[in-house]
Design a protein around this nucleic acid. Structure first.
Lengths: 354, 354
DNA sequence: CGGATTCTTTACAACGTTGTATACAACGAT
DNA sequence: ATCGTTGTATACAACGTTGTAAAGAATCCG
């Protein structure tokens, strides 16, 4: 009864439409039709084919399909690191939103290294992905503009005016102003900022710093350079170190605006570790509204960007770009943000009342 | 000076080896040889081809390559949710380790839903991935055994003896015992457990509960069912709720072992929010050692599984399975763990001394 | 009953790539 | 001069799929 020359597993030969067709006694195309739910197939044929499929344990070959159809249904999401909660949360939302379009998401980690970012934008995955959503860290606007790959691209979180690609942003300046103003309204006067970046091609740090300065200016508060702390990265450890530095200096601040929540949580750790009352002595605000900040003690006041909308718009822009291929001018979409007031600025009592 | 009948972009035709070959005046195979760095190509030919490649902006088509070669270089990682820090950290490690083998990782989120887990293990991605690393939540051992797809599979974190697939586990029972014993050695006597699961096909909760009970028994402590709290999921919110429940009951515990760090962080939030001293009044231990727990106040005592090793072994097993295809018996690898003592059990002073 | 329509199935080609086999040229050793 | 070796380039086939066209069978309409 057939199949005898291969020792080992019984039916472990490659099986494609051809094999199924032979087994069912029909043409390859008919099998294909069954697989794809084409309507004009007699019930008998269909069931015969289906039996053969089950018998041979057939699975369609997606690569072949892709080759034939010219599209893969896969998009890539390139982020610095997956274990940064903000990106993890965003990745989740994007994956979920992509499913609604029957797209699969492949995630690339750039580690914020320029060379890796370049590989990604230059299309190492060419023809394997239909589009790319990219959150740049090291690459500058100019570099981005020069890319030769023509995979549809959507940028996240950078404001590259007249840039080479669509992008989705939050209004970093306005948001940073909101956070800073909130601290000011609480009566704080020596407000530090953690998260400036000396090198960084990226705009994020620069824009949030600008917002911070503008809010100070609007309130008539002096800008004190010694209250601005630069960091290498936006991780908890950097925030903790920066806060230690601030506390170590002669005249510590009475509030700190951290350019993201991880920095803030690191700073919080340092403060509490040294017995500093938060927000009593030092009030603290972050940016991103990651889940951790909702469960810290005190809970973290932060800027809440509309992450669902970021995911949504990124996919919308990508879809558009994929459809009508050639030059339509790059578009920028700004998603909303809100200031979420929690205990790290309001204190326990007021936070619970609101 | 061709290309005139397509309005719009200049060279936006599909370009494959064929087009490059025509442009360079060589055969398709020669272009392929150049692209793949084949040595026996004259410098002139090579540079002519390279110029054509640049000129036409050629990118190799990975789908075609895949189809031809029968392997994609892509493996899938299926986890419940990407924004659970443990999985995010693991995903990062796996992606990094996979790179060393020139594999790309595609991440699937199952949301812990059986139907989605089944799709993944039944090979929706057949022939698109060379292997699958899967962290099951809803599917039982039996269901897993029945799968008909033959994509190489490695399971994470479940102990399915004589299972249908290789798996990498931590010794959940031993680890849970370690954590519980630590609490006992600190003099705690009413030790609660948060994280049992009523439904769950998964073993994790059951095993950690078993370890907890065994440690109690070994110390001659009574097992009090009212101190075991079941949860729906392993998120912060569940931990917070469970802790509230424990505090609400008449006789609260003096220590809590949470079956993962998120539960512990949620519990911690509830404790601190109600002004309970940790670890003074209630000591707290978790499981996973996610980064959040290193920056909470107090820092979180936890079981530290060797995540690098989990990633490493998962890939090793997968590689083996991919190489010698047919039935070699399923293998189980147990990776090490340690108990990381921090402030949530030792208190500030002792934690800093150690 | 004849012609038009619909149903069902099929053959063929093409998507872009690379392994194999082969051809010819150039070269070195005898 | 001859043979074998190496270098360089090529043609062909195949990977598995599906859109197109087309053919024969069944059905409908007047």
């Amino acid at each position: 009864m057939g199949e005898a020359d291969d020792r080992g597993e019984p039916s472990r030969r490659r099986v494609g439409l051809k094999e199924v067709a032979r087994e069912a006694g029909v043409s390859v195309k008919t099998v294909s039709n069954v697989v794809n739910g084409y309507v004009h197939v007699t019930p008998e044929t269909r069931s015969r084919v289906e039996r053969a499929i089950r018998e041979l344990n057939y699975r369609p070959n997606l690569s072949a399909r892709t080759l034939r159809q010219g599209r893969t249904g896969i998009i890539a999401l390139a982020v610095p690191e997956l274990d940064i909660p903000y990106f993890a949360e965003l990745a989740k939302l994007i994956v979920t939103a992509a499913e609604a379009r029957s797209w699969t998401v492949l995630i690339d980690q750039t580690e914020g290294r320029r060379e890796r970012e370049q590989l990604v934008t230059e299309g190492i995955r060419a023809h394997l992905i239909d589009g790319l959503i990219f959150s740049p860290l090291a690459m500058s606007a100019a570099e981005l503009r020069d890319r030769t790959d023509d995979t549809p691209l959507v940028l996240l979180g950078e404001r590259i005016h007249h840039g080479p690609a669509d992008h989705v942003v939050v209004d970093n300046i306005a948001a940073a102003m909101d956070a800073t103003r909130h601290l000011i309204e609480l009566g704080r006067r020596r407000i530090a900022a953690i998260g400036a970046q000396d090198d960084a091609a990226g705009e994020t740090g620069r824009l949030r710093l600008a917002g911070y300065r503008r809010a100070l200016a609007a309130a008539g508060l002096p800008f004190d350079e010694s209250l601005v702390i630069s960091v290498d990265a936006y991780h908890r450890a950097d925030g903790a170190r920066a806060m230690a530095h601030l506390l170590g200096s002669g005249d510590p601040p009475d509030a700190v605006f951290c350019f993201n929540d991880l920095l803030a949580l690191g700073a919080l750790r340092t403060l509490l570790d040294r017995g500093v009352d938060v927000p009593g002595t030092v009030a603290l605000a972050g940016f991103d509204d990651i889940e951790d900040g909702r469960y810290s003690t005190p809970t973290l006041t932060t800027i809440t960007p509309d992450k669902e909308m970021i995911a949504q718009h990124a996919l919308d822009l990508l879809a558009e770009r994929m459809a009508r291929r050639p030059a339509r001018p790059a578009r920028e979409v700004t998603v909303g943000h809100t200031l979420t007031r929690r205990e790290s600025t309001l204190g326990r009592r007021r936070a619970q009342r609101d």
